[in-house]
Design a protein around this nucleic acid. Structure first.
Length: 647
RNA sequence: GCUGGUGUAGCACAGUCGGUAGUGCAGCUGAUUCGUAAUCAGCAGGUCGUGUGUUCGAGUCACAUCACCAGCUCCA
């Protein structure tokens, strides 16, 4: 008999030689039916793996991420098997499970089309119906290489070659298909009840643009058809929130072919929201001791040579004139604010009494992104950020970093985005071959150690992103996902010791010695265009009242109420609210419908009764008819909602 | 930049085998003065993303180019 320890501490006895599936059955047949994999002493394994005496045992179901990964990873093998059956010449690359699905990369002569996907799906259905058992076997490195060659899989050979020499390599076989794979997998293909291939795209082998572009098929799968349908419906729903569609429909922004890619026009509504956010951030920063600066949008190449941008970032810059002709003046639009804002500090000799010096600027930047990178308002070529640089004595670093993080969390929380944010400690990669980073290993290790200590002291729950640092230092990036699950940085806080040195920044300390300051680069709300995009998606266009471009629309029922309507508009406008009158000759139902579709927070319906009583009939987009109020009551309700920045 | 897809009126779409462009909503004009998600009628609006080519003839076919979308790479 074997003894397994369960999660609740109880001990389960099973026959010698029992598999993890047998153990699951021993717990309960229902659990065994839902089981996708298991954990032995915390290590994920297939259900077919033998139970180990004395091990801690756990059954993985759909409720666990590991369980879902096993399920989807097996689906990717079914996909690969179907592709190999239909297109024997296709070469296999990799096929992992990802969040919400899986993909598999193939090297094929001609990329798959939508029609091919249908054929492949049909073949996958057959494979699932055949209920083929998956079996694991291991080979030595040499045997594995021979196996890869025998299968005619050059990419698998490359993968094996890069694994450590003494590694034991596992393969999974399912009928006529075998794949190099760490696993684990479902016991058979029959468990995959519902799946769908979603898209076919290109992807570079090993993620390197110098390598061949492979053909990637994305898909997803679920244990029940209803769950798949629900997922597809959720994807459809996400598309409706897409800022790039909704933001154009609701007239927040537009683009014009003649102006160019990545250069959106902010229409009155979008421009208003961004103005509101900017005023708020500038005021918040002023309250926190920031000094306001306004620095040029361009500079001579000489400045970028000092900062290192000329060497490290030139491809990303808009350069005017001949970059190669050293005799002539050459200007470039700024891709970052740092070297400009440092000049404020450098304006005169500084003492320790000047520090901390907190500089803030609503800063417009220009980056010549590659043509395929642009996306709505999220990735653009000209954008405006709530920029700031803090020049510090070393002992001020931790406290100021904490305050930067607090400010970022406060503004993200206020706009309602904090709950969906994740934190990433972005570090350098000493092995990066592209000469991406400035400075020495010692400087990097010091900056990262300092930052790591601060993050740990502050209890920040972060993931580490290797090779995600800026060229001059490590970053804490606050990440946000768009409706399609694609992640971008919304706020960044960076520690920099290199640029201070390059620009010769120093201060006289209490002991009369010249010392090098630390610098924090940070944003409060990141890039306003990007933030607007996320807000449109988060609220599906119904922005909270305090930031809504139009807060109230007055809807007179007939033209007898027009004078009252315009007087009311002027009254509310003077109080600082954003109000319009819909005085068109239309029925009130029509006007309400339009205001609802534009997601306006409040509609004030005015008929003879309201005019007579001097009141307003209030309708909110959320709760419908709120009944009649006096004008003062409504104004007070609105004031409280705006001042508290209610969501 | 790379792979694939898309591009017809402000928006959503139709347009057959290559034969000279339609529908609905929006807009404008008129009538209607109406109580919580669409009043009725009329009018106007498009060198079919752009360019070149094939053809007697191109929205339709070919090539190039631009923009948009998904993904890769890159990044706030």
């Amino acid at each position: 008999m074997l003894k397994l320890t369960l999660k609740d501490g109880s001990v389960l006895e099973v026959e010698a030689g029992a598999s993890c599936l047998d153990a699951a059955k021993a717990i309960s047949p229902g659990l065994a039916r839902a089981a996708l994999g298991a954990k032995l002493d915390g290590e994920v394994c297939s259900l077919s793996a033998p139970a180990r005496d004395g091990a801690a045992f756990e059954v993985l179901t759909w409720d666990s991420e590991e369980g879902r990964k096993i399920f989807r990873h097996t689906t990717s093998h079914v996909l690969a098997q179907a592709v190999k059956r239909l297109y024997p010449a296709a070469k296999l690359a990799i096929g992992p499970a990802i969040e919400n699905g899986f993909y598999y990369d193939f090297d094929v002569a001609t990329p798959f089309t939508a029609a091919d996907l249908e054929k492949i799906e049909a073949e996958m259905k057959k494979i699932v119906k055949e209920d083929i058992a998956l079996s694991r076997f291991t080979l030595s490195r040499e045997e594995a290489l021979a196996k890869a060659d025998a299968m005619g899989e050059p990419y698998k050979r490359e993968l094996i070659e890069d694994l450590p020499e003494d590694a034991e390599l596992s393969f999974y076989a399912q009928g006529d298909f075998t794949d190099l794979c760490a696993g684990p997998h479902l016991p058979t293909t029959g468990g995959i009840k519902a799946f769908k291939l979603l898209s076919v795209t290109g992807a570079y082998w090993r993620g390197d643009e110098k390598n061949k572009m492979l053909c990637r098929i994305y898909g997803t799968s679920f244990p029940k058809a209803a769950m798949l349908e629900e997922h597809i419906a959720a994807l459809e729903d996400a598309k409706k929130r897409d800022h790039n569609k909704l933001g154009r429909e609701l007239e927040y922004f537009t683009t014009v072919d003649e102006i160019g890619q990545g250069l959106p026009i902010l229409l009155p509504k979008g421009a208003r929201v961004i103005q509101l956010l900017q005023r708020w951030i500038e005021d918040e920063e002023q309250k926190r001791g920031y000094l306001l600066t306004k620095t040029p949008l361009m500079a001579k190449r000489d400045l970028y040579k000092i900062s290192g941008h000329w060497d490290h970032y030139r491809d990303g810059m808009f350069i005017m004139g001949d970059a190669e002709d050293e005799e002539k003046e050459c200007f470039a639009m700024r891709p970052m604010t740092c070297p400009f804002q440092y000049q404020v500090f450098l304006n005169r000799a500084r003492s320790y009494r000047d520090l901390p010096m907190r500089l803030g600027e609503t800063s417009t930047l220009f980056r010549n992104e590659e043509s395929g990178e642009m996306h709505g308002l999220i990735r653009v070529r000209q954008f405006t950020i709530s920029e700031g640089h803090l020049v510090l004595r070393p002992e001020q670093l931790e406290e100021e970093f904490r305050e930067c993080l607090e400010l970022a969390k406060y503004v993200l929380d206020t706009v309602g985005m904090l709950e969906d944010c994740t934190f990433r400690f972005s570090q350098w990669d000493p092995a990066n071959p592209k000469n991406k980073y400035e400075g020495t290993a010692e400087q990097w290790n010091e900056a990262q150690a300092v930052m790591g200590k601060i993050l740990d002291n502050l209890g920040v729950n972060y993931t580490v992103g290797i090779d995600e640092a800026a060229f001059y230092g490590p970053k804490l990036d606050i990440q946000y996902k768009n409706v399609f699950g694609k992640e971008d940085t919304i706020v960044t806080i960076q520690i920099d010791m290199l640029l201070a040195e390059k620009f010769g920044m120093e201060y006289t300390d209490t002991d009369g010695q010249k010392k090098r300051p630390y610098i924090i680069h940070r944003t409060s709300l990141g890039c306003y265009e990007r933030t607007l995009a996320y807000l449109i998606e988060k609220y599906a266009g119904a922005l909270p009242t305090w930031m809504a471009p139009e807060q109230v629309r007055i809807l007179p029922i007939t033209d007898r109420q027009h004078d009252y309507a315009f007087a009311l508009r002027d009254e509310l406008t003077k109080m600082g609210f954003r109000v319009e009158v819909d005085d068109r000759n239309e029925k009130v139902g029509y006007k309400i419908r339009e205001a609802q579709m534009q997601k306006l927070p409040y509609m004030l319906v005015l008929g003879d009764k309201e005019v007579e009583a001097g009141g307003v009939a209030v309708r909110s987009r959320k709760d419908g008819d709120l009944g009649v109020m006096t004008r003062a009551e409504f104004a007070e309700k609105l004031r409280v909602e705006v001042e508290t920045r209610a969501r």
